[in-house]
Amino acid sequence: MPENLFKINKEEYMLPGNRSCQGCGLSLSYRYALKALRENTILTLPACCLTVLHGLYPTTSVTIPCLNCTFASTAASAAGLVAGLNATGKTDTTVVAFAGDGGTFDMGIQALSGAAERGTDFIFVCYDNEGYMNTGTQRSSATPMGAITTTTPILTKEQHKKDMLKIMEAHDIAYIATTSPAYPIDLYDKFVKAKRIKGTRYMQICVPCPPGWGYPPRDTVKIARLAIETGVFVLFEMENGKFRFTGRSKSLAEKGNRLPLINYIERQDRFKKISEEQLSLLQKFTDNKWNEYLKKAEG
């Protein structure tokens, strides 16, 4: 890995001294996403942690132009930007929508589905921190079973996580990729690739959140790595419907040495109330998803 490190764009587009938390997984992912996207990019963001990172008027901590929009209209605003750029002949500019899991899985889904159906030429990035972390850890449809949130404080969340990747796959879009801040070079490469492709592109980043998930800020990269090692989150890319594992998930699929889920669960306070039954259900859910991916990779 360190050999490729020198190929990374040295320019910083996310300036230091921003409002992200200590050890923020989003901040780390965003740094590399922007390095890969470079200039000639327009961002559009709903109200989310990323808006906090971008800062308060009249200053911002990001050097790439950005439009702030409402929660439900992220993909719609991106479609508007694309139409505007086309009308003014600026076809070489990439439009990138960045939304959290609330802005993608819950509120943003209809606008995203519409834009994907129309084949709007833009990148939609969902940074999945498995809850409404910006407003204080409320439950979202991306929260895994057994996790404590401020809206599921006693019984924990009783439902499984929504499979947004499958929903996006059903839209037959040009490119789908998942990536993680534990492997910044993989993240960088996927964003560079996504920028070159035309059509609707969907990316999902597994972003650990120290205050929301309940672990010390220094463990962000470790937790993100464990999510991959246990198979909770799978690194893959899908170009025109052709599935392939990438990075660490590829070697896990070849060797079959995935870690048991407990390694990932025990490090996070949000799972402190998970019952034995829920844990086995969660393990089964993860195994089933993993086997689905293995089948996809074969055929």
Binding site: L15, P16, G17, N18, R19, L56, Y57, T59, T60, S61
Partner: peptide
């Protein structure tokens, strides 16, 4: 907004 280092002060 205009970009600046230290948007949130000396973090």
């Amino acid at each position: 907004s205009t970009p600046a280092i230290g948007e949130a002060g000396f973090t």
